[in-house]
């Protein structure tokens, strides 16, 4: 039995020829990420472990993006703890106010993730980097602490659901509509602890922004990670943003999937998720008049 993209990446990072769904492994990580909410907790645990140095000062990224410029004294103290740790450990990828951005947009832009990487971040939306064909997932602050010290993390190898995309999106329809449509289809626990693997000829018509948006919300379907097959657009993005070496993984022909969905991109309408779940989706023929007070776009 073959392996999925995710399983192949995890096997190689664990130094194994083969892994099975459900197997517990220790894998080397290529990047450990934290923000101004989660990193201060991780730093405290790192020190409690007795760790003295991070495993690799180039493979830790710290982004103060949640409450900066500091919104109050507490956030100021948290950012200060992170800044001092970054300085003491000579962390190469610490992004001060003025350089920082929303972490999951900033990390790819800075070229810190490339295809085939294993990335963990103490933020649930770390799954975003699957758009680049990397295995990328959110963890707790203690996992972040241990990985900063050792360069490793343990995982339970996930099963996968395969989404075979075909066709092209209609005008105005974008990645957000695709992922809301899919979460509406499978539910907020529809991919619980599984990989959502996106393949098919339809992938090539999706922009990198579409793919980041789709992978970002894999966690909203309960997924361990979302991951896109690498194509020319991915490689172009990587060449423009990164000088890191990378390896492209493809699922085996006989990889096993718990489910396979065929999605025709041209059939996806503009989609809005109503309160209070990302799966509570409606299309414009069902929406009617809903006055709003604020709109917010990033």
């Amino acid at each position: 039995m073959g392996m999925t993209m995710t399983q192949k990446i995890l096997a190689e990072h664990a130094g194994l020829n083969k892994v099975e769904p459900g197997q517990l492994i220790m894998a080397n990580v290529d990047l450990v990420l934290g923000n101004d909410i989660t990193a201060p907790v991780a730093i405290r645990e790192f020190k409690r472990m007795g760790a003295k140095r991070v495993f690799d000062r180039k493979k830790v990224a710290l982004v103060p993006d949640h409450f900066t410029p500091n919104k109050d004294i507490k956030s100021a103290e948290q950012c200060k703890a992170m800044r001092e740790f970054a300085h003491d450990m000579e962390i190469e990828n610490y992004f001060e106010v003025g350089q920082m951005g929303i972490e999951h947009a900033l990390i790819p832009e800075k070229g810190l993730v490339v295809p085939g990487d294993v990335v963990i971040g103490a933020d649930s939306h770390t799954c975003t980097y699957g758009a680049l064909g990397a295995f990328s997932t959110g963890v707790g602050s203690t996992d972040m602490a241990a990985a900063m010290a050792t360069g490793q993390a343990w995982f339970k190898v996930p099963e996968a659901i395969r989404f075979v995309l075909k066709g092209r999106l209609n005008e105005w329809v974008s990645g957000k509509d695709v992922i809301l449509h899919i979460i509406g289809l499978i539910g907020v626990d529809g991919a619980l602890y599984q990989s959502m693997e996106f393949t098919g000829e339809g992938v090539s018509s999706l922009s990198m922004d579409d793919r980041f948006t789709i992978a970002n919300m894999a966690i909203e379907a309960g997924a361990k990670n979302g991951i896109f097959e690498v194509d020319d657009k991915t490689l172009e993005y990587v060449r423009q943003h990164s000088t890191k070496e990378f390896k492209v993984y493809k699922a085996d022909e006989d990889a096993r999937y718990s489910k396979v969905f065929e999605i025709d991109l041209s059939s996806i309408p503009l989609t809005v998720a109503f309160p209070h779940l990302p799966s509570n989706v409606k299309t414009f023929d069902e929406i009617g008049d809903i006055p709003i007070d604020q709109q917010w776009t990033a």
Partner: peptide, 20 residues
């Protein structure tokens, strides 16, 4: 909170209601 694409958010900002 209603989740939508940037295009829908921009249209909604213009009309004051959720809009395509």
């Amino acid at each position: 909170v209603y989740l939508a694409s940037p295009a829908v958010a921009a249209a909604s900002a213009i009309t004051g209601k959720i809009s395509s």
